[in-house]
Amino acid sequence: MRRGVRNIVRLKHLNKAGHWPSGNPRMYYRPKGEKAIKLPDLPVNSPEFIAAYVSASGGQQPTKKHLTGSIGAAVRAYMASDAYLTMAGSTRSRWSNFLGDIVDKYGKAPIGGLKPKHIRAALADFPAHPANNRLKVWRSLCRWACEAGLIENDPAAAVSPRKTPSTGGHEPWNREDIAVFRTHWPIDTPERLALELLFWTGARISDAVRLGPAMIDKDGWLTFSQTKTGGQVEVPFYAPAPTFSEADEHLKDAINHAPRHLVFMITAFGKPRSVKAASQWFSAAAKKAGIQGKTAHGLRKLRAIVMAENGASPHQIAAWTGHETLAEVQRYTNKANKRRTISGTKSSNSAELVPTFTLKSL
């Protein structure tokens, strides 16, 4: 994988304006619509000039143009393909870092020489979970390369994922955690609004940052498309909700105490939060409240647990949370059913509806 052609470095946004007395070209870094930045009197291919260019461009490294047939060229073409561009934005964001790492390490090597042993070696230094995540990227890249005719056989297909211990994923919150968080964060804080929004909707943080009043229809249903799957979710917001949801007034009160914006989760400057920043911000808020090791995704799990304990069916839970399959939802209902069987309690899966929020409150 170390063989390959020489890289060609392309410096973007450079403008030439004559020559210095030394004979070197007088160069300026000037992206479209921005003020020009003078670069030093140095040969354009010198390390010092490249360093000045990187500084002027805000730390962006110059792009490398890999010749046809290299892994680097294959990665760039893959990232421009439907196979990559139709993925969820959150997936592309994670995968772009992995793909960039592949280009940096193996970009000069010919894609035709890629073998399973090379991919195994590329993953060997990572723990099991990160290695398996990167293997997914290699598999998608190689599968696309086969379909594009760049390689005859898929080398990633012969690489097996590593065995990993079962961790259960994100730890779910419990009702005591909710009470502790509510005690620590007053109803008029953005942290409290985030908690109530995440808990009631059961939305992933990638979707919660986009939720706003405009997504609530005239019948009082919050409707949105999931970033991860593209599936549509509908949650009763001020429409009557089934009894298994344990509807309360907390989200309504938090919204009434918050300033009006296009989305519910905003920064101190009134701007929408990014997914990564919102996730870190909310985890920090939980930690400040004394809740350790729990994330926003744990509230999504608690929403499913609450409904399962109150007798909701797997289909009802999946319709609310937007799960594409019933496998994960079934775990919540199975556990809840066992507890009801042992305790002798009956299911509260009722068609009775209880009001959630009033239209006036929104």
Rank of each mutant, 00 (worst) to 15 (best):
D154V: 06
G212N: 01
P190M: 07
S225D: 12
R143Y: 00
A121W: 00
Y28M: 05
K163E: 11
S283G: 12
L251T: 08
G58N: 11
N153I: 15
E191K: 04
A121K: 09
P186Y: 01
W281G: 12
G4S: 06
T91C: 01
A304R: 04
M307P: 04
F282A: 06
S343L: 15
A52P: 11
R303E: 02
L302P: 02
E171T: 14
K117N: 08
V75Y: 08
A124K: 15
D219Y: 13
Q60P: 00
D177I: 00
A286F: 03
W144E: 06
I216W: 02
F98P: 01
T358Y: 03
A17F: 07
G169Y: 07
A203K: 09
G100I: 05
T358V: 11
W20A: 10
A73N: 14
G23F: 01
H19C: 07
P127N: 10
H66N: 10
I342L: 14
V180Y: 00
V54A: 11
D207H: 05
I50A: 08
T164M: 14
R204G: 03
Q61F: 00
S46F: 01
P213I: 00
S206M: 11
P21M: 10
P62G: 08
A52V: 05
P240V: 05
K65E: 15
D41A: 10
Y84F: 15
N15L: 15
L299I: 03
Q280W: 08
G4K: 01
S206T: 13
F199N: 08
R3H: 06
G311V: 11
L99K: 09
W173T: 12
R10E: 14
P47E: 06
G89R: 14
A148K: 11
V329G: 08
C142L: 11
P186D: 10
P242L: 09
L114W: 00
F224Y: 15
S166Y: 11
W221P: 09
G100R: 07
G59Q: 04
R76V: 13
F181I: 12
P165K: 11
N153L: 12
V209F: 03
K108C: 06
Q61R: 04
L150F: 12
